[in-house]
Nucleic acid binder design. Structure first.
Lengths: 334, 334
DNA sequence: TTGTAGGCGTTATCAT
DNA sequence: ATGATAACGCCTACAA
């Protein structure tokens, strides 16, 4: 292991002060062409890397964004986040920002985030749906770090980017009733009291009532494959078999569909199923899933764009709350 | 935003030196009970968080592990990693270590990792299968950071934890031939030249030759759902329809199965399909996927255990290369 | 058990 | 265009 090379090493060899080296790194436009080239060559030769900790301690920037998610028992990165993260990452990279995903599943994990916030190792945060405990959010906001919420409109006073849960759910249930002739419906709902859960559930209830269709009930379950399986079992056990099911999420729908078919039900012949999210996987199930499409990737992209704008210009966008439209994607499950 | 509180703030209020505060944080056993309580209370009251950057700069530890992965076009965290990461995270948490996932998909992303390495923001690295460019690995190893490789035995001189690709693949293909009576086989292989690809492919070739069964060919594709779809299309286009397919990975198998069924083939009736990995998803497809099980979660757990042992005791485990057994899980696709 | 001094590597600020 | 100096917040080493 060769000896450590610091900014001083470079400065000495180049015959300049370390400030000049620092400038080469951070404000090359303030350095003369000749020294710039010389210093850069030496940096290259010695494989010098500035220490980010010394840098942040001294007040420098790191151009790093944080993404707050919450893992499930099945997925370190639950599928719902996937495309949002993918979209966000794409834009971040384009803008020269790096990113870290912070899983907020427990205190150990959270301490990493708080460490990084206080060290200024992250400059801005995107808080995804699913992370919404009041106390945790409060702790984060108290640090004063710049923040954008994605997926849920849970705070009036901060930027949020969400999608039109109500209309999406409405369209799905109406499709089941009007186009597929369903008469006995069930909604598999989430377990949380976050807006997305509530709004989709409410829309379901409204539509069912509107059209005078029978509501066999609402089954609550966690948004996992296994959650879907359990919900399906419960439905089967109860004995009141619906001809249509509207699920809170695709991942639930996939689990439920699997279990239902396992028990000999044919989909969509016996039971029609509609999901919500339109995750990538939904195109590859058998039958492919009919679902409410959210443009999750675009939401991620916009979130990053907004965040970077706030960071670079230190101003807020005029519109605090953006709501993306949704639309039904009809495949084979309903 | 309240004024920033540093170790000095606490020290002054507590009427002690900042070293005592530092000790309270890092070596509480060296501090008298009374001061300990007093200082802790003040820390709590003011919500003081030590700055991790100042800490690492001064030589402190952060107890953070890094997980090196590579995203795909479809997944920010490809399913293959999922359970390994889940297992690794579990143990890390138990041991009081935090973790960061580093996606090494491009230079911007990589720069984050190198920043963190040089700042000592990560103490040890787990390098997963899929990250294996010579130059990149070399760069990482040159930094001198402690490392464990998981999924591939790509380096003789470092710790690796991998699974028995050869036997797994052999068992899968033999099952297809011996138990399911397949006579015309195809292997959908990966595109990389990493050991797992090579070994599975080689085993396929050997078994096919051994039993004098017809090898319709090897189709290469990327390990994504879409890759599986493309491979299936190619097979269909070529016109030589196999009665059995052995896939490099489950994710490929799921994509291929989907496309094949799309084209009217019945699985397993017309074509039998076997995957590799046994990712969670494989239990939920229709039909559920027959596949070679790797104990990915356990590999992740052991990797972390090993890494922490190396970090804490500064010694290497006696056995440098661990190979986990695999076994065939028979479900419905073959 | 506690305190003092010094340094970790970088950047901001003010000079020149 | 470049340099000197101080400061960032914490920890190690040594001293009391």
């Amino acid at each position: 292991m060769r000896k450590k090379v610091t900014i001083d090493t470079i400065a000495k060899i180049a015959g300049v002060s370390k400030m000049t080296v620092s400038r080469v790194l951070n404000h090359p436009e303030l350095v003369s062409k000749r020294t710039l080239i010389k210093v850069r060559r030496i940096i290259e030769e010695l494989g010098y890397h500035p220490r980010a900790d010394a840098r942040t301690l001294a007040g420098g920037r790191v151009k790093t964004l944080g993404f707050l998610i919450k893992s499930s028992s099945e997925f370190a990165l639950p599928p719902f986040y996937n495309e949002c993260v993918l979209g966000a990452f794409k834009i971040a990279k384009e803008k020269g920002y790096r990113f870290i995903m912070y899983d907020l599943i427990d205190e150990t994990s959270i301490s990493l985030l708080t460490d990084h916030i206080h060290s200024h190792f992250v400059e801005g945060l995107i808080i995804f749906e699913g992370v919404y405990e009041e106390t945790l959010i409060k702790r984060i906001l108290d640090s004063g770090i710049t923040v954008v919420f994605v997926g849920e409109k849970i705070r009036d006073d901060f930027i949020t980017i969400s999608s039109d849960n109500k209309n999406g759910a409405r369209e799905a249930v109406e499709y089941l009733i009007l186009k597929r002739g369903c008469k006995r419906l069930i909604h598999i709902a989430g377990t949380d009291d976050k807006p997305s859960c509530l709004e989709r559930e409410m829309a379901y209830l409204e539509v069912v009532e509107n059209y005078g269709v029978e509501n066999l009930g609402i089954v609550r379950t966690s948004s996992t494959l296994e959650g879907g399986v359990k919900a399906a079992r419960e439905i089967i056990k109860n004995g009141a078999i619906p001809d249509g099911i509207f699920c809170f999420s695709d991942i639930i729908a996939i689990g439920a569909m699997h279990e239902l078919m396992n028990h000999g039900f044919s989909i969509p012949k016996d039971i029609k199923i509609v999901g919500f999210d339109d995750i990538i996987l939904s195109r590859y199930t058998t039958p492919p899933l009919t679902t409410v499409h959210q443009d999750i990737a675009k939401m991620g992209e916009l979130a990053v764009l907004t965040l970077i704008q706030m960071l670079d210009n230190k101003n807020e966008p005029r519109q605090k709350h953006i709501v993306f439209p949704t639309h039904l994607v009809i495949r084979k499950s309903a």
